[in-house]
């Protein structure tokens, strides 16, 4: 029984990262119709920013510096998203699909090496916040408080995004664009600005997810590849541009992973992609898409 609680909590923990990462991917896909292959790089930028801050300044008060790192990661990744959109993505909206995909692929390669230029090729360790938070007991097992903290953080962020999307004018405009771009334009919504905003927001969320992972994993080159492909499965499962879809998709993928690595580690990864394929074939709009 205790084991099952731990599997499920682990699933929630995976799901938290997936939720934060896929939310951005989903917003960008929904609002702009662009599958942003460079989204994982935002995750990496966030991870490196936070790991560097905690490692360099977190000697005495790692927790405070960790929170600073989270905010900085959010900010830096958000700015990278804004710069990316205004510089190279913007001319692409009228272009054919192959060019849109290719330009984000180019951006992915660029950002990967920019990270290497800024932070060097070495790994950054920042496990202090994890050890400081300590463990709680579940039955005979120890469970780190940090995992619960991550789950809480993503819940709070998700709630925040939901409030923005449903209550504020900006959120309503973003949803309007993803429902019907032409109509939204006709109604006088300034699409250009909102595109930039969506990109920045998506980047910031991925950056936050990246920052949250560094107490458990060192920041390494290529750290964003796995989250990108997982977020991609989540978006396929949940449906484009749907907050609820991203949430439920993350839960499905997170729990499948967590239970899969225990019971059927060999086929856990192929199974996830296979689920994505099946959903794409039979319900391409996703489980919760319109």
């Amino acid at each position: 029984m205790e084991n099952w609680i731990i599997y499920i909590l682990n699933g929630l923990y995976f799901a938290s990262f997936l939720f934060l990462t896929s939310l951005g991917l989903s917003i960008i896909l929904g609002v702009m119709g662009i599958l942003n292959l460079a989204h994982g790089s935002m995750f990496a930028v966030g991870a490196f920013t936070a790991a560097w801050i905690v490692g360099a300044f977190g000697g005495e008060s790692p927790m405070i510096m960790f929170f600073v790192g989270l905010l900085a990661a959010l900010g830096v990744a958000g700015v990278v998203g804004l710069v990316l959109e205004t510089s190279i993505i913007r001319p692409m909206y009228r272009q054919a699909l192959e060019y849109q995909l290719l330009i984000t692929f180019g951006a992915l390669l660029l950002i990967e090496d920019l990270i290497k230029m800024v932070w060097g090729g070495t790994a950054y360790y920042a496990s202090k916040p994890f050890t400081v938070m300590g463990n709680m007991a579940i039955g005979d097992n120890q469970y780190p408080y940090y995992f619960l903290f991550v789950i809480l953080m993503s819940l709070v962020t998700g709630l925040g995004i939901w409030l923005v999307m449903s209550k504020t004018q900006v959120g309503i405009m973003l949803r309007a664009i993803s429902m019907d771009r032409e109509m939204a334009k006709a109604m006088g919504i300034r699409i250009g600005r909102l595109n930039t905003l969506a990109f920045g927001l998506g980047g910031a969320l991925a950056g936050l997810a990246g920052a949250l992972i560094i107490p458990t994993t060192p920041a390494l080159l290529g750290i964003g590849m796995d989250p990108l492909i997982m977020a991609f499965i989540v978006v396929v499962l949940g449906g484009l541009g749907s907050l609820k879809g991203a949430l439920i998709g993350s839960l499905i993928v997170g729990e499948t992973r967590s239970i899969g690595v225990v019971f059927f580690p060999e086929i856990e990864l192929p199974l996830l992609f296979l689920i994505a394929v099946i959903i794409l074939v039979f319900k391409p709009e996703g489980l919760f898409g319109k």
Partner: peptide
């Protein structure tokens, strides 16, 4: 260069644009 991805990525972006 060790930044070969940067070179490839930059050429790609320039090419597409």
């Amino acid at each position: 260069t060790q930044y070969w991805m940067f070179v490839i990525g930059a050429t790609l972006v320039i090419l597409v644009l």
